[in-house]
Design a protein around this nucleic acid. Structure first.
Lengths: 237, 237
DNA sequence: TCTCCTTTTTGACTTAAGTCAAACCATCTT
DNA sequence: AAGATGGTTTGACTTAAGTCAAAAAGGAGA
C-alpha cells in the first residue's frame, strides 16, 4: 500500500515477471500492488484463507509449509527476494479464482524481521497479463525454474539425511555466492531446515556434527563454512 | 513419422496444448511431429542424450526416472495419455536449447507394449508457439498442474510408507474413474510403484498386505479394490 | 552481567524401513 | 507339461532415523 523506497524501478525490474517493463508500466505495477512489511513469525496467509492473489518477496525470507494431522510442520519451499509465491492457483481454474472459491494451497510465514512482500491481486494481474503478452513467457520460464527445483527436491527426498543435507549446502553455496568464498549464512533456523529436509532437529544436528567430525564443514551458529568441497560432493551422491 | 489412425484430430485436441487449434493447425502439427510406437521397456531417451524436443503420450504409460550412483532407480513421474513430458528444458535457456547444449533432465521408458508417443522438436515447437500466442496460456496451465502435483508428491514423501501408499491409491482411484466403481488396475509394476513411493519392493509388499489384513483393500495382481474408503482416507493422513 | 526463554545438542532407547536370501507364483516358451 | 524367467512375497536380521528427556548454548532485555 505504502510507497516505499524499496519499491524503486531497479528493484521491480529484478522481479522476473516485470524485467522487460518500461517505466510507465512499472509505475502501473506500483500503483496496483500492495506492499507489506512483516515481522519474523508473522503469517502472510493461511491455507484456509480465500485466495486473493500472489506475492513477491522483496526482502527477507518466507517459508511455505503444511501442517499434517499430527501437528508436524512440513516445509515445501523457502522463498528469497525477487521470487514469487502462490502464483500457481492463478492458472488453474480461472473461473474459480475469479469467484473467490479458491483457498491458498499452503501456509506462508516470514522468517526474518523486516521481511517485505508485494501482493498482486488476481484481477490486477490478469489485466496486466492481457496488456503484456510478453509476460506469459516470463511466467512460463519462472514455472520451468520451479519445476526443475521441485524435481531436484523430490530426487533428494529419496536419499538419506546426510545426502540431503550435503545437497542442500552445495545448492545454497551455489546460490549465495558466485564469488570464491566458501562460507554462507543460513537464513532459516535449524528447526526449519530440518523440516525442509524432511527430518527432525536431532537428526539434522547429528548429521551436521558428523560432517564437522569428518572435517568437511564447520558450523558456527548460522554460519556454515565448507572445508572440503570434494568430500561434500562425494557425500551428496 | 508414420501417419497413423491414432493421430486423428479428436485425439490431438485432447492434448491440452492443442485444444484450441483449428483443423488446419492440427494438420500442421501432424506434419511436423514424429510419431513413435514403443515396446515395454524401450527407452524414449536417456538423460545423457542431447535435448531435441519434448514428447506427448498418446497411448500406454511412460516412467521418468533417475539412477543414483549406487545404481538404484528413482521414479519421478508416471506419464499417462495426453500429457506431455520433458517440456521444461524448452523454457529454461532458449539459447542453449537452440545450440544443442542441453541434455534431457532424466530418463524415460515405456511401461507397456504398444505405447505411442509424439515427438515435437524444439524448433518446430518454438515456431508453433510464435504463431499461436494462445498456446502460452495452455503451457502455463499445464505447468501449474504439474507444479501442484509435485507439491503434493513432496508433501507425501515426508510421510511414512503406508501413508504414501494410501494417498497414491486414493489419487489413482480419483483419476481413473469418476464413476462409482471402487477398483482399478495399476499401470506399472509393483517394483516401479515402490520406486515412485521412494521405497523398495519388500516394504511396498508388506504395506499392501497390512491394508489387506485390515480389510481396507484387496489386491489381486494389478487390480486393487477399495473395500473401506473411510479407513483408507484415515490411513492417508 | 544476570536472568529468562528459546534454540540446539546429547544420550539412551524404540521403531520403521532397508538388506539379504530364499521361496513362491504367474506367464511364456519349446 | 516341464523348464525358464521375471515379478512378488516371506522371514530373519541390521541399520537409519525417530522419540523422549534432559542438558547445554545463545540471545534479548532488565
Amino acid at each position: 500500500m505504502a510507497k516505499n523506497s524499496i519499491m524503486n524501478d531497479e528493484d521491480l525490474r529484478k522481479i522476473h515477471f516485470f524485467s522487460e517493463f518500461d517505466d510507465d508500466e512499472l509505475k502501473k505495477v506500483r500503483s496496483v500492488s500492495n506492499f507489506k512489511t512483516l515481522a519474523k513469525g508473522e503469517m502472510v496467509f493461511f491455507e484456509t484463507e480465500p485466495y486473493i492473489g500472489f506475492y513477491i518477496v522483496l526482502k527477507g525470507c518466507i517459508k511455505i509449509f503444511k501442517i499434517s494431522k499430527d501437528g508436524r510442520e512440513h516445509i515445501l519451499h523457502f522463498i528469497y527476494p525477487f521470487d514469487s509465491f502462490a502464483e500457481v492457483p492463478l492458472f488453474e481454474k480461472y473461473e474459480k479464482v475469479s469467484k473467490d472459491e479458491f483457498s491458498y494451497p499452503a501456509n506462508a510465514m516470514a522468517l526474518e524481521n523486516d521481511t517485505k512482500v508485494l501482493l498482486l491481486r488476481s484481477q490486477t494481474f490478469y489485466s496486466l497479463l492481457e496488456k503484456n503478452r510478453s509476460m506469459s513467457l516470463k511466467i512460463i520460464s519462472g514455472f520451468a525454474k520451479k519445476l526443475r527445483h521441485l524435481n531436484k527436491h523430490i530426487e533428494s527426498l529419496t536419499q538419506d539425511i546426510p545426502k540431503r543435507l550435503a545437497r542442500f549446502i552445495l545448492e545454497e553455496k551455489k546460490q549465495k555466492f558466485k564469488d570464491g568464498r566458501e562460507h554462507f549464512e543460513l537464513r532459516m533456523s535449524k528447526h526449519d531446515l530440518a523440516s525442509y529436509l524432511g527430518t527432525i532437529d536431532e537428526t539434522l544436528s547429528r548429521s551436521l556434527k558428523k560432517f564437522q567430525d569428518d572435517k568437511i564443514i564447520t558450523v558456527s551458529g548460522k554460519k556454515i563454512t565448507i572445508l572440503n568441497k570434494q568430500l561434500l560432493q562425494d557425500s551428496a551422491t
